[in-house]
Design a binder for these strands. Structure first.
Lengths: 206, 206
DNA sequence: ACCTTCATGATACGTCTGTATCATGAAGGT
DNA sequence: ACCTTCATGATACAGACGTATCATGAAGGT
C-alpha cells in the first residue's frame, strides 16, 4: 500500500478550519473553498475527505458535539473532588454561557446548525436530539441525586428542572451573542436561576 | 404625476413573501428571485422597492417585529378585562411558544436573523436590542406591579425575572423548532416556570 | 523493477446569486 | 397634445458556489 495519512486527524483539521471560518464570518460563509483556504489545503482535499458539502457539515457538527462534551466533562473534573450537586449544576450553567472565545464559538455554531435543522430535516437529525437529550438526562440524574441528598426541595421536578435549565442557559447564550446581555450579566441571571432551583444560597461558586 | 401605487402595501406584500419563503425553506433560501416568485412579481420589482438585498432583509426584520408586537398586544387585549399580572405573564409565555403556524414562523425567522446578526454587526442592530428590550421592560413593569399587588413574592427581582422569562421562553421555542420538545411539553415547562416565579397556583390559564 | 492503490493538484462546467442596464407602458400636470 | 415622472418588464453580467474530471506524484507489495 502507498503512503497513508491519518484520515481522522486530517478530517479534524479541516473541521476545525470550518469552525474557525464559521465563527468569524457566519456559517453561511463557510464554503468549500473558504474552508480549504482556512485549513491551508486545496479545494480538492476538502472534497476528498468529505465527499460533499453536506458531508462536511455533518462531520463538523459531530466534531463540535464531541468537543463540547469533552469540555463539559473537563469542567466537571476540575471541580473540588466531592462536588455538591448544586456546584455541578452551577458548573454546567457557567460552562454554557458564552464567556470565553471557545464557548462563544460553540454556541454560535450550534445555534447556526440548529436554525438550519429547523427547515432541513435531513441535516443531522441525530445530534440535535441525542446531544442535548444526553445532557438533559445527566442534569435530571444530578437533580434526582440532589433530591435524595435533601439539597433540592422536594417539590421541584427533576425532569422539568433539567429542561428548564437547558432552555434558560440556551436563551441566555443567544442574548449574549446578539449583544443584548453581557456575559457577566448572563452569569448573574444564571446564578439567580440556580439559586431559585435550589433553596437559599449556601455553596461556593466556580 | 403618473399613477402611484401604495408603496407601503407593496413592500408589506413582498416582505410577507420573504417570510413565507424563509419559513418553508430557511432564510438562506430566500433569494431575490425566490421572493419575487413567491410574491408573484418580477425580480425587478423586488429590486425597485428594496434597492438591495440587505434592504430587503432589513425591512423584513422590521416587518416581523411589528407583526409580533401586534400579535402580543392582541393576545393581551383578548384577556378578561382585569387580568392579573400572573395571567398576563402566562399569556406572554404562551404566545412565545411556537404552537401555531404563525408563531412557529416568527420564532424561526427571528432566530435565523439573530444568528446572522451574531457575525454581521451591520445587520439591523436595532431590532435585536430594542425589540426584546421593550418586551423585557414591559415584563419588568408587569412584575413590579405584581410586587405591589402582593401577587409576587417580594424576594423575586423583577428585572432578573424578566430576563429569565425571556431566556426560558426563547430557549423552549428553539427546542420546539428543532423537534426536541413538543409544543405541549414546552407549554408545561413554561407554565411550571411561571408557577415557580409566582407562588402557588391560583389563576386560570389561557 | 513494476504495478496497484492512495493522495493530491489543476482546472473546467453548469447553475445560481446579486446587481446593473435598457426599454417601455401608464398617467397626471401644463 | 405633450412631456415628465412613476412603475415595471426583459435581459445581461460578473462572480461565487458545489461538483466533476483529468492528471500525476508517492509508496508499499510482489
Amino acid at each position: 500500500m502507498p503512503r497513508t495519512v491519518d484520515h481522522g486527524q486530517r478530517r479534524a483539521h479541516i473541521c476545525n478550519a470550518l469552525v474557525r471560518t464559521a465563527a468569524r464570518d457566519g456559517l453561511h460563509a463557510a464554503t468549500m473553498r473558504s474552508v480549504a483556504a482556512e485549513a491551508g489545503v486545496s479545494l480538492r482535499l476538502v472534497q476528498y475527505y468529505f465527499e460533499t458539502k453536506a458531508g462536511l457539515l455533518h462531520a463538523a457538527l459531530l466534531h463540535l458535539e464531541e468537543r463540547s462534551h469533552r469540555r463539559w466533562n473537563e469542567r466537571l473534573a476540575a471541580l473540588p473532588s466531592p462536588a455538591s450537586p448544586r456546584a455541578r449544576v452551577h458548573a454546567f450553567v457557567a460552562e454554557a454561557i458564552p464567556d470565553d472565545d471557545d464557548s462563544r464559538v460553540f454556541h454560535l455554531l450550534w445555534t447556526s446548525f440548529a436554525v438550519l435543522a429547523m427547515t432541513d430535516p435531513a441535516l443531522a437529525e441525530q445530534p440535535f436530539v441525542s446531544g442535548p437529550e444526553r445532557l438533559e438526562r445527566q442534569l435530571t440524574d444530578l437533580l434526582t441525586e440532589a433530591h435524595a441528598d435533601g439539597a433540592l426541595p422536594t417539590d421541584q421536578d427533576p425532569a422539568l428542572e433539567a429542561t428548564r435549565l437547558l432552555a434558560v442557559t440556551h436563551g441566555l447564550g443567544t442574548d449574549v451573542l446578539t449583544g443584548r446581555l453581557t456575559p457577566q450579566r448572563a452569569l448573574v441571571v444564571a446564578g439567580y436561576h440556580v439559586d431559585r432551583v435550589f433553596g437559599a444560597r449556601s455553596t461556593t461558586d466556580t
